[in-house]
Simulated scan of single mutants.
Amino acid sequence: MELMVGLTKCLKKNLFDVSIRICMVQTMHYTRLAEVGKLETPKIQGKYDTGQLFLHRVFGYRGVVLFPWLARVYDRDIPNKRASQDDANFNHVGKEVKGRTHTFYQVLIDSRDCPYIRAQTEAVTFLGNQDSSRSLYAIPGLDYVAHEDILPYTTTEKQPLQHELFDKFLMYYPDKDPPFGPQETLRAWQKKNHPWLELSDVHKETTENVRVTVIPFYMGCRESQATSVFWWRYCIRLENLGDLTVQLRERHWRIFSLSGTLETVRGRGVVGQEPVLSSSLPAFQYSSHVSLQAPSGHMWGTFRMEREDGYTFDCRIPPFSLESKSEDPGSTTGVI
């Protein structure tokens, strides 16, 4: 089945959106369809190999798998025996949630699709190498994708993806399936940056048909003469599972540090935007950062959402831990 022709009914709309984005990258003056490959059946069991080309099920971009991560997913929507005992607690901070192992993938995003993605494409950041530096360095076009969001496809092109790291990390092997395999550069980069790239915990919760997914990452510690500052980044995805359009209006965070402090943060929107989640564009993803003067802490909060019929509600952000890791003093981060 050709990639631009069709899919099953549940995927037709997503596929159509992808094809339009691809065509708009090629020309802003007119629209034309161009075949980029042929879809394969998504894997129900097993993992995708390094070099697997795919379309993102939600955001529609073209990408390639670099390597997998095994993460613990804490889904607060899944009932458990103690859930009913904690329903009175609005933020569900004390609710016991059992983690389930799930596969995610480190991927590269095709740079031609980046302008049309409702997600930050420079979300994976690293601290500067100097101990006193607070500078953040981003690797453009790097993302984390859940197994169920991978729509695999094949192509006969030797250069199917445009990304500055594609040739550095992958090599073409015409007799392999997929025909792209890892170079030693990729293995070395993965090993060196493993502590800062590692995806270990994922947290999910749904309120009024709006699902919030949070993935925290430890970035490292920066020390001065007086204090030690620990840094984390966190990736948040909002997805509208209902039929009515909703818009994010405000954010409200509670940040607890092991040092004993509790900080409250309120503000309009997120990362300078008040994203609209509609049936045609149901998802939005962004990343931000937090620092503590303690090696661990917790975060939780709410997003104030406004529905198209005027109804407003607080969408819960699932509580998540901020945990530090031991560091190699001689290591550098983010360098290719």
Rank of each mutant, 00 (worst) to 15 (best):
T121V: 09
G141S: 09
Y116D: 11
L142F: 08
R100E: 12
A123G: 15
G141N: 01
A138R: 04
Q130C: 08
S111D: 08
V107N: 02
L136K: 13
V107R: 06
A146L: 14
A146G: 06
R112F: 07
P115E: 01
T125R: 10
Y116I: 03
V145A: 08
R112C: 06
P140I: 12
G128H: 04
T103L: 09
T103F: 06
L127Q: 02
R100K: 15
T121Y: 11
S111E: 14
T125L: 09
P115V: 00
T101L: 14
G141I: 04
T103D: 10
P140E: 08
S111F: 08
S133V: 05
D110C: 03
Y137R: 07
Y116G: 05
V107I: 11
T125A: 12
S132C: 09
I109G: 06
D131P: 01
S133C: 11
S132H: 15
I117Q: 00
Q106K: 15
H102D: 13
A138H: 09
I139W: 06
G141F: 03
E122D: 10
A123Q: 05
Y105S: 00
P140Q: 02
I139A: 04
Q106M: 07
T101V: 13
D143K: 09
S133K: 01
Y144N: 00
F126R: 02
N129V: 09
R134F: 12
F104A: 06
Q120W: 10
T103V: 13
E122S: 15
T121D: 05
V124K: 03
Y144M: 03
R118A: 06
I109Y: 04
Y137Q: 03
V145I: 13
N129Q: 15
I117W: 00
P140C: 14
S135Y: 08
R100D: 13
T121N: 06
T103P: 11
T103E: 03
Y116R: 00
G141P: 00
L127R: 03
Y116H: 06
A146T: 12
D131A: 11
A146S: 14
R100T: 10
Q106D: 08
L142D: 02
S133I: 10
Q120Y: 11
L127C: 01
D131H: 03
L142G: 04
Y105F: 07
P115N: 02
T125D: 07
G128A: 07
D113F: 09
L108A: 07
L142K: 00
V124T: 02
F104E: 07
G141Q: 00
Y137I: 15
Y144V: 10
G141V: 04
Y137M: 12
V124S: 03
G141Y: 00
P140Y: 13
V124G: 10
D110I: 07
V124A: 03
Y105I: 05
G128T: 02
C114P: 00
Y116E: 07
Y105M: 02
P140H: 05
Y105P: 08
Q106F: 06
C114A: 15
P140V: 02
A119D: 15
D143H: 11
R112Q: 13
F126Q: 04
Q130G: 11
R134K: 09
T121I: 05
C114E: 13
L127S: 05
F104C: 11
G141W: 00
L136G: 04
A138W: 01
E122C: 14
V124N: 05
Q106S: 14
Q106G: 13
L108C: 06
R100Y: 10
